[in-house]
Structure formats: C-alpha cells, structure tokens
Simulated scan of single mutants.
Amino acid sequence: MNDHQSILRLALSRGLFSYLSAQPLYDLCHEQVADACRLIDQCFLRIHGDDINKDLASMCIQTTIHEETIFQYASTDTKARLAHWVRMYSNCYSASERDAHSAYIMACAVKALETLANWMQTVDQEAWSHVSERPTDWPRDLYCQFVEMQVDPDERIQTLDDYALYLKPIISLPCLTDDELRHIADRAIKNAIRKKGGLVSGMERNEEISVRDAAIVKQGLHYRAAGMPKRNVATKVHAWLQGEVAKPPKQRPEWITLETEKALTRKRVEAVLKRNFVL
C-alpha cells in the first residue's frame, strides 16, 4: 500500500488526526494538519454522513490515486466536467456530482497531508540515523525538542509549498468555484503561505544577525590584537556598535539593516564575543 492510500485509509477510519498529532513535529505544522483534516472530515460527511460504503470508499481511494490525471483533464475540459472524470477514473459511475466533487477535494487534502506526514517521518528517522535505536526512556517533550532541532528550514519551506500546491486545484478548478468547501481550502493555502513567509523572514533575520555578529567579533579581535585587556573589550565594542548605529543611514555599514539597527546591550555584545571565543 502506498503512502497516500495509507493516509486515506486512516482518514476513512477517522484515525488520521490521532496518527498525525502523535508525530514529534506535529507542533510545527498543527495548523496545516487541522485545516486539511477539516476538509477531509467535511468531505466524509458530505459523501455518506457518519458512514461510508465500500463503493464510495473505493471511489475516494481511486480518485486519490488518479488525482493528477483527473486534474489535467478537468482543468482543460471546457465543459467543466470534474465529476465525469472522477467517475471514469474511480469506476464509480453511479456517484452524484456532489459525491464526486467531495472525493476529489478529499484527494487533494489527503495528498497535502501526505507531504506533511512524509516530511515529519523523514526528519524523525534521520534524527536517529546515527544511533542503533531510538531512545525509549526520554520524556516526550525532550524527544520532540531533539527532533525539532534537526529540521532543515529549507526542507520545511518546500513542504509548505507542496502542501499549498496540492490544495490549489480546489480553488482553481472552475467547477468548484461555488463549492462551500472552497473557502476552507483557500484559508488553508493562505495559512501555509503565511507560515512560509514567517520562516523565510526568520531565516533572513538570522542571516543579518550573523553578519552583525561577525562585525562585532572582528572589532573585538581588533581591540585584542591592539593589546586591550579582556575586561575592557566588551565595553569598547559596545561603544563602537552604538556609534555605528547612530550614524546617518547612508553612512552606516551595510550589515546594519532594519532588523539589526537597534544597538545591542553591553551584556548581549559580551555574550556574542564569548560565544565566538574573543573573550
């Protein structure tokens, strides 16, 4: 059984949220999980209330397997026949248009969750690749914290991109324009984009701070090389930094950006110098 079938079967058995929320990296993407699970739950209820028969379950599975092909045909079909293509590729010709649309929306949400699940599992597995087995006696908080430390920001951003991409057909296909679930997908995509924006901004800020810290270290080393006693270096570097920040914008060094223009306290400057073995 492939990954998206596993995710879908969990969804059909109502065990999906429990499975995903138990993952060590769940806290990093709980909003995305909640949005996609809500889509799946709403589709589930639309298709068959509180239960789902074998034929409709098969339709959901086959629609997920053939989602990309269905989208290719539906997005170029001038007659907006998404339901037709779902029926054809799922071999469920008796499905109503509403059920067929629900199966397709569910397929998109399942694929979006699949990319999150794969990312969480991969990071968790790679976090322990250097040991023979995972620790079984660690508190859950410590275990999750350790796995979170192994996250590659670029891979996390790519996962959010893929998540939004899998949901995009729900808001782009003309025949789903008036579907009441469209706004849930739209919100989920916007939430993912907002999350990605925060990560990118944080990475840029970290890069700017790294450049600033490098300048602080360089100045500290300059004073040390000139014979200044260690006890005076932090104070001198702090005064130098305040002077650089106080300059008119056009005269400031390039490493002073909007994110780093506020001068650090002496204590913070000292911490930077100690962290980089200047003191």
Results as ranks from 00 to 15, higher is better:
residue 74 A to C: 08
residue 108 C to M: 04
residue 47 I to T: 07
residue 64 T to Q: 05
residue 118 N to R: 15
residue 49 G to D: 00
residue 104 Y to S: 10
residue 103 A to F: 01
residue 76 T to L: 12
residue 59 M to F: 06
residue 80 A to P: 00
residue 87 R to P: 04
residue 57 A to M: 11
residue 83 A to H: 10
residue 44 F to S: 13
residue 100 A to E: 06
residue 64 T to A: 14
residue 121 Q to W: 09
residue 66 H to T: 04
residue 111 K to E: 11
residue 99 D to I: 07
residue 60 C to S: 12
residue 50 D to R: 14
residue 56 L to Y: 11
residue 119 W to D: 05
residue 67 E to Y: 00
residue 99 D to G: 01
residue 76 T to I: 04
residue 104 Y to K: 10
residue 67 E to P: 01
residue 115 T to F: 02
residue 68 E to T: 09
residue 117 A to N: 13
residue 61 I to E: 12
residue 49 G to S: 03
residue 88 M to F: 15
residue 52 I to Y: 00
residue 72 Q to R: 12
residue 105 I to P: 00
residue 66 H to L: 02
residue 64 T to W: 05
residue 89 Y to Q: 12
residue 109 A to Q: 10
residue 113 L to I: 15
residue 116 L to D: 03
residue 119 W to K: 09
residue 72 Q to N: 10
residue 52 I to N: 00
residue 84 H to E: 12
residue 109 A to F: 11
residue 114 E to A: 12
residue 77 D to R: 02
residue 49 G to F: 02
residue 95 A to F: 04
residue 79 K to D: 00
residue 99 D to Y: 00
residue 110 V to D: 07
residue 91 N to H: 12
residue 110 V to Y: 07
residue 58 S to I: 00
residue 56 L to Q: 12
residue 105 I to G: 00
residue 95 A to M: 03
residue 48 H to K: 09
residue 78 T to G: 14
residue 113 L to S: 14
residue 97 E to L: 08
residue 99 D to R: 10
residue 100 A to G: 08
residue 65 I to G: 01
residue 101 H to I: 11
residue 100 A to W: 03
residue 80 A to C: 13
residue 101 H to P: 06
residue 55 D to E: 14
residue 110 V to C: 12
residue 113 L to G: 13
residue 84 H to R: 15
residue 62 Q to L: 12
residue 53 N to I: 01
residue 115 T to Y: 01
residue 67 E to L: 04
residue 94 S to W: 09
residue 58 S to L: 08
residue 82 L to N: 05
residue 119 W to V: 01
residue 57 A to Y: 03
residue 67 E to C: 05
residue 44 F to A: 10
residue 83 A to Y: 07
residue 89 Y to P: 06
residue 69 T to N: 00
residue 59 M to R: 05
residue 85 W to G: 04
residue 114 E to D: 14
residue 75 S to I: 04
residue 119 W to R: 09
residue 109 A to R: 11
residue 57 A to C: 09
residue 116 L to K: 07
residue 102 S to N: 10
residue 53 N to C: 08
residue 97 E to H: 11
residue 68 E to D: 07
residue 48 H to Q: 14
residue 113 L to R: 13
residue 102 S to R: 11
residue 114 E to T: 15
residue 54 K to T: 11
residue 60 C to F: 03
residue 101 H to V: 12
residue 103 A to Q: 03
residue 107 A to S: 15
residue 87 R to K: 13
residue 88 M to W: 11
residue 61 I to H: 05
residue 57 A to K: 12
residue 97 E to Q: 14
residue 68 E to F: 01
residue 46 R to H: 04
residue 69 T to E: 02
residue 76 T to N: 15
residue 66 H to I: 01
residue 61 I to G: 02
residue 118 N to V: 14
residue 50 D to Q: 12
residue 107 A to E: 07
